[in-house]
Amino acid sequence: MRAEVISTHRGGVWSWLFQRITAVLLIVCLAIHLIFTHILNIGELDSANVAARLANAGLTAVDIILLAAGIYHALNGLRMVLMDYWFTSRTRALTLTIVLWVVGLAFMGYGTWALWPWIS
């Protein structure tokens, strides 16, 4: 039972690996995101301020990486939690995985569209 609780690769080896790769990406990019948004470049809290920041292609790239890595890491983490409670069987877990991929891809598309007024 204990092994069940602490094992971090039950969701599969690839999801274990990608969870760690996205974790590292998130730490680096989130640090950049937070420092540039809240420490270095604080101005009026409005869309013009966001536009000024996203005029920098590097910061836009950071935001897109955050979007993709964040969605993967969040939904895979949610999947790991849910697989502890109700999605315990193979079939349920597979259904969950498929549903979360659909949700994740939808959010990826929606999030990119959301950034569009600033990056276009």
């Binding site: 966001v50 969040a74 999030g111 959301a114 569009w116 007024p117 600033w118």
Partner: peptide, 16 residues
């Protein structure tokens, strides 16, 4: 953080 990420994407999309 999962809930915040969802909210953050939706709030940002209000620019549209």
């Amino acid at each position: 953080l999962v809930l915040y990420l969802g909210a953050h994407i939706i709030v940002t999309s209000m620019g549209q």
